[in-house]
């Protein structure tokens, strides 16, 4: 356990500068947009010069940039992300309302893509170069080229518009009054299409990583040993080859979490799914830069947390992780 703990501590310390850099970056973007926000606001409500000046005062636009950065950091430390002009609400509350929905979508598609993708990767990698392998690898490449949002549209067209099997948009039936399991089932039905659209692309990726990992592991000495031990082919494929090839797939899971979060923005927009992505789209439409950057910051924190979890899982799967650190103590 101590080996995992050491690793966690190292990662947590390492993520502090990352978060600081991102915060400074968002601050600059905020600065660049600052004037616009006042102008946009003024343009919308038709404010006069006096009100504009008052707004500038209120938003601290007349102070030195360094002071403003300090104020910004101080506010962030208190989880105060500012006020959303588009929704007329505090940003942090909005984010906390939408985050669970996005996590649900991401979790579902990750489970789908990782599970199915690595499973099919095992099927393909069980005999590298076989017809089955070539069909699956090629299919994965084609799937990987499909733009997620367009796939979403096509799925929606087919399964909702034409067949009417699944709901077209939203996260649950509005004002249905459903509770308990019935409500969960309703949400699950709403999740099918967006989660599939998001998952299919990553499914292709995990399939390919698993497959090429297995092709590599087959050439290793310890596989020759396993064959010399006369183990059943099934056991060699699953317990020796796939078990080792799983490691790079898990690594990929962490690497891709940021991309998946980005991809969910468009998918949520396609399906009107009320998560952070749809919120980001509203922020763009409402020219609400503080809200948009709040979403960026929350995404970064989410990505860091997901990567921490992935690191722990990896350490559980690979006994060699952190062996040096432990030895050095």
């Amino acid at each position: 356990m101590s080996r995992t703990w050491l690793l966690l501590r190292r990662r947590l310390i390492g993520s502090v500068p990352v978060i600081l850099i991102v915060v400074v970056g968002t601050f600059f973007l905020l600065e660049a947009a600052g004037g616009d926000a006042v102008d946009a606001y003024a343009g919308e409500v038709g404010a006069d010069a006096g009100l504009i000046e008052q707004l500038r005062q209120q938003w601290g636009l007349n102070e030195s940039p360094l002071t403003r950065l300090a104020t910004y950091l101080w506010a962030l430390l208190h989880l105060d992300l500012g006020w959303s002009v588009a929704f007329s609400r505090p940003i942090s509350g909005l984010l906390m309302e939408r985050l669970p929905n996005t996590l649900l979508l991401m979790g579902t598609s990750t489970a789908l893509s990782f599970g199915l993708g690595s499973l099919l990767g095992v099927v393909a990698g069980a005999r590298p170069g076989s017809a089955r392998d070539r069909v699956l690898s090629m299919g994965a490449l084609v799937l990987y080229a499909v733009p997620g949002f367009w796939l979403g549209l096509v799925l929606a067209l087919f399964f909702s518009v034409q067949l009417g099997w699944l709901p077209l948009a939203g996260i649950e039936t509005i004002a249905s009054g459903l509770t308990g399991w019935a409500r969960a089932a309703d949400i699950a039905r709403h999740l099918v299409l967006p989660a599939s659209a998001l998952a299919l692309i990553y499914l292709a990726l995990y399939l390919r990583v698993m497959r090429s990992g297995m092709a590599e592991v087959w050439r290793m000495d310890f596989i020759r040993t396993a064959r010399a031990k006369g183990l059943a082919r099934r056991r060699i494929v699953l317990r020796h080859v796939a078990r080792n090839a799983l490691l790079p797939v898990v690594t990929m899971l962490g690497v891709q979490s940021a991309q998946m979060l980005g991809g969910s923005v468009v998918i949520e927009s396609v399906f009107g799914y009320p998560g952070l992505g749809l919120l980001a789209e509203s922020a763009v439409r409402g020219r609400d830069t503080p809200l948009l950057l709040g979403i960026v910051l929350l995404s970064v924190v989410t990505v860091i947390v997901v990567n921490l979890v992935v690191d722990i899982v990896y350490a559980l799967l690979d006994p060699r992780v952190g062996a040096e650190a432990e030895g050095a103590r």
Partner: peptide, 10 residues
């Protein structure tokens, strides 16, 4: 760490 698409969007 920043999702590429969100960064581009922002």
């Amino acid at each position: 760490t920043v999702p590429a698409f969100l960064l581009a969007l922002a």
